[in-house]
Simulated scan of single mutants.
Amino acid sequence: MQFLFKFYQRITWLSIDVVLGAMAGMLFFARALRVELDWQEYVLLGMAVWCIYTADHLMDAGKLTSAPRQDRHHFHLIYRTPLLMGLCLVGFIGLFWAIQFFGFSGELFFGTGLGVLILAIMLAVRKFGALQVRLKELSSAVFYVIGISWLPWYETPEIDYTWTVFGLTILYMGLAYLNLIMLSSLDTKSDEEAGFVSIATKIPQEKLLTNIRNLSISLILCSLLGLLLVNSFYRIYPGLLVIMLLVHFLCFFKTNLSAEQVRMRMEVAFLIPAILLLI
């Protein structure tokens, strides 16, 4: 059991779980918008997400101000060179593959532009430090959902746009934001030791926990309301969001779990939309 935990821990440190969660999220929006995407589009998204998250972790590791601990930052610091080489290789292959698959089309230019914009925001977040701390998690959540949903939205005829899917997009952003502030709360001690600035290092923990609880309950109630109000075709989507939100809420506020166990369970929650493959 300990071996399986350590194995999955390494998967988490390498952001593989985030990649799979992003691909499941794209499937969520593709099915909600009734768009059929090619498997190559899912793989290209996964490669882009891995590059962005790995670049982010490498930048974090490079900013360590104290002796690193046995965690994700330590892992990226120790294996900085091979991870940087992997980042360059995956980025190059992904860009070449995207050009081959999409051609010089709107999809290519929009996707590339979005990736560049996200990287620019990541750099700006680090440059302005405490001035941006309250917006860091929010902007990350918004761009994460834009990143996994823009292609289904792009390939859907405007006549098929619905307020229901727009509402699902907003709720998914809320879920992503909740995930990030929960993770920030879990990492408060390690972030302070490493000299990182986050929402959890600037807001008192008691107030942050209250905000997390209120946001969780609000999102769960909104998703349940959506479950009741939408027509039968869309009902599964707010249902999946309810399950994902409940996993976050129950794991985060379950006191007998370690921070690492909570983190792993919350990341697994983003794989739940993969159940749509069976429907």
Rank of each mutant, 00 (worst) to 15 (best):
E192P: 00
A200M: 02
L209T: 05
L183R: 13
N214Y: 12
I212Y: 06
L209V: 02
E192K: 12
V197I: 14
L229D: 14
Q205A: 12
T201A: 15
I220A: 03
S190W: 00
S198M: 02
V230N: 10
I212M: 04
E206I: 07
L227E: 06
K189H: 10
K207N: 11
L227T: 15
T188K: 08
L225H: 00
E193W: 12
S198A: 09
G195N: 09
C222W: 05
N214H: 02
F196D: 06
S198L: 02
L186R: 10
N214T: 08
T201S: 07
T201V: 14
S185Y: 11
D187M: 01
D187N: 08
A194N: 13
G195L: 09
E192I: 15
L225G: 10
N214S: 12
L229K: 08
N211Q: 00
I217N: 07
F196K: 02
K202Q: 15
K207P: 03
L219R: 11
V197S: 08
Q205M: 10
L227H: 11
L219S: 01
D191V: 08
G195K: 13
G226R: 04
L224C: 10
M182V: 01
E193T: 03
S223D: 06
T201L: 15
G226H: 09
R213Y: 10
K202C: 12
V230S: 10
I217W: 14
R213G: 09
Q205Y: 12
A194F: 12
I199A: 15
T201C: 10
I220E: 05
C222D: 00
T210F: 13
K189S: 04
L215H: 05
L186S: 09
L225P: 01
G226A: 13
L209G: 00
S190C: 05
S198R: 00
I220F: 13
C222Q: 01
L209Y: 03
N211I: 00
R213P: 03
M182E: 09
L208D: 11
G226M: 14
S198T: 01
P204W: 08
S190T: 01
L183W: 07
L229S: 11
L215S: 15
V197L: 12
K202M: 11
V197A: 00
T210Q: 04
A194H: 06
L209S: 05
L227C: 14
L224D: 06
G195A: 11
L208F: 14
L221F: 15
L215F: 14
A200W: 05
V197W: 07
C222A: 05
L221W: 15
F196V: 04
I199M: 08
N214A: 15
I212C: 03
F196W: 12
S223Q: 12
S184A: 11
R213S: 13
G226I: 07
L229A: 14
N214R: 04
N211H: 01
L225C: 07
S185W: 07
K202Y: 13
L215C: 15
L224F: 10
I199W: 14
N211C: 01
S218A: 06
V197C: 02
G226D: 02
I217L: 03
S190D: 08
T188N: 14
L208N: 09
L209M: 07
I212V: 07
L219P: 13
G195Y: 11
N214L: 13
P204H: 12
L208E: 08
L221S: 13
T201F: 15
V197M: 08
L186K: 13
L228C: 04
T188P: 04
